[in-house]
Design a protein around this nucleic acid. Structure first.
Lengths: 359, 359
DNA sequence: CTGAAAGCGCTTACAG
DNA sequence: CTGAAAGCGCTTACAG
């Protein structure tokens, strides 16, 4: 037990700079200087201070520092559902690069509930996060207002919101679904069912637009009976797929607008006694790490999750470093169609090929 | 534009209690009283203060409050790999119940890297989190030391660490694997391969012990050739399974000690030209939401993820509320064997049954 | 019921 | 190179 400890009995609270200063017989300003390396301190004092710090077990109080500096070195992050593997991956990458840059991340999930989301953003702002990365839940009229009141940099990921003019990194959703749908059309499918995400989200709308565009380009008439709302959730998608599959003239292929919904689709196919890809072709948005291993091996649109996370983190970091003073930056990344074997040529095509002796 | 704004031009920084106090012509103490409801203030003043708050757009600064109060109402949470669906689910539940209790959560992932983990815990502690929930990475000699220096409540989840005597919620891993292995033995398998997690973790050790125990109980000699280290990762498990499958007398069944590794196992089976369950039976620890839908439908040990998250969160909350003053509480939950169809009776059993006319 | 004042633990001009 | 002092925005005894 050292002398300093005896003279000033260590309180139950953590040691502060004052304690260090007393032990080293210097001022707190000097302690601060060596702790932060903000000024040059003589070797003698530096040594004494460092010894005292070690001896006492001093740790700088980040809260006091934040109050004084007006910055917390933490970023708020809200996602609708971290249980969705897409978001999980993105969150993981964001956490990684932010941590490497010395930032902590406060995570909030809201299960697509708008009020919870507003709550959480408010909570994050109250805690003075230096920046915000938001994967917004659906149509949120309040988001704009909440965000307007603050001056922390915010970047939207995955989805964008009307009137929220901030940095964002999103996918070229329309293009990606256009490609996937076109692929199915090339396979000879003419009645392609589409399980849509919520149309209150930009992703829901853009993906559906890609489907429409592909049909148009192929000169195929659009049939609303083939489009059902799944709202990005398994349960809703199950019901939607059931409706599709029990129609008199059921689709020969189905595209699901995200990963969660394709599970519902597969369950519906199973429950109705069909099998994929023999009886019906399936493809979906979002890739799975295990897509290669289980059957059917799903054909998917893979999102560049790592790039999305990295860019989003970099965008806030750049703003925080004052590197970007100009208007909002919108990064648009491309998806990639992963052709596996959950889609088969349509019977008519196979038939045609056979007649031509090609199969 | 109101008068108060004109007389005291709103600075670029957020409005403070002082601004409110001036606008309402009261002291900050009174403002504090109404903001926090800590004292009874006359209706007249209350009204004036509330109006001023609304007018100015005042938000209480949580950082300053934290500094004064010595508590931040945030909990630190570290997990090895949030990308692992098991952890994802647990984190999601923890976040949910903590948020409901008014706490924020700071999330850190360390990819099973011990030094990163120590870093992160240090960072969390520096930021004065009120409590810590840790799913510890492997064998960490430093963890004990780091945690000893603090007096915030910590609860371990999933894995426990030697010498770290804190609250914890874990699974009865040995029992769960005992059950799964016994199930395979009942199916007639005698050579059951085991892909183990890292033995630097309690889960790795306990699960392996369950395997041993089951063999013992069945009076089956243990063969080390059948046990391989997969370290809870897909890539390592792939190699391990490859070794198992290319042995002269290869196993007729394989148990994988977690979800990530079973993907490696399935890839190895596929690459070697075998198929499950026809040629080889497979089961694993950790359930998948899609296990019902894809083939083979994996037989798994499901963990009660929701209960784990809830209990862990409740444990910190209880400590914080001073409800539990006694020693460390260790909650042990039970896994559940989800029998699906990735395991088939062993040929010998089928043969035997045939001979007895039972099949 | 209300306010003046001290203090939470730090940082940062400003003197010396 | 070093220290005294003010202040970040709040809360909380303590007077009145």
């Amino acid at each position: 037990m050292t002398k300093s400890k005896r003279t000033r009995p260590r309180k139950s609270t953590a040691p502060t700079m004052l304690h260090v200063a007393e032990a080293a017989r210097v001022s707190v300003a000097t302690v601060s200087a060596v702790v932060n390396g903000t000024a040059v301190v003589s070797p003698a004092l530096t040594a004494r201070i460092e010894a005292a710090i070690k001896d006492i077990g001093y740790k700088r109080n980040a809260i006091a520092r934040s109050l004084k500096l007006g910055k917390t070195r933490t970023i708020g992050l809200t996602v609708a559902d971290i249980t969705n593997p897409f978001f999980t991956d993105v969150v993981s990458v964001i956490q990684e690069v932010l941590h490497r840059a010395g930032y902590a991340v406060m995570l909030c999930c809201n299960d697509e509930d708008i009020e919870t989301q507003d709550d959480q953003i408010q909570l994050l702002l109250d805690r003075m996060v230096d920046g915000l990365i938001i994967a917004p839940a659906g149509d949120d009229a309040n988001l704009k207002r909440i965000l307007e009141g603050t001056n922390v940099p915010v970047v939207l990921i995955d989805r964008i919101c009307d009137g929220v003019d901030t940095d964002a990194v999103v996918l070229d959703n329309q293009r990606a679904v256009f490609d996937a749908t076109t692929y199915m059309l090339h396979l000879g499918h003419r009645r392609i069912g589409y399980i849509s995400g919520s149309l209150d989200t930009s992703t829901g709308r853009d993906r559906l637009a890609g489907y429409h565009e592909a049909l148009d380009s192929a000169g195929i008439a659009f049939d609303d009976e083939l489009v059902r709302l799944g709202n990005f959730r398994e349960a809703d998608a199950y019901k939607a797929a059931m409706q599709l599959l029990t129609q008199p003239d059921r689709p020969t292929a189905i595209f699901s607008a995200n990963n969660l919904m394709v599970i519902g689709v597969m369950k519906a196919i199973r429950d109705i006694g069909l099998s994929c890809p023999e009886d019906i072709s399936v493809a979906c948005f979002d890739d799975f790490p295990w897509a290669d291993v289980f059957r059917p091996q799903l054909t998917t649109v893979a999102q560049p999750v790592r790039a999305i996370g990295e860019q989003a983190a970099q965008l806030v970091l750049d703003r925080l470093a004052g590197k970007t003073e100009n208007g909002p930056r919108r990064l648009v990344l491309q998806g990639r169609l992963m052709v596996r074997n959950s889609c088969r040529p349509h019977a008519s095509l196979v038939q045609g090929a056979r007649e031509h002796g090609a199969l």
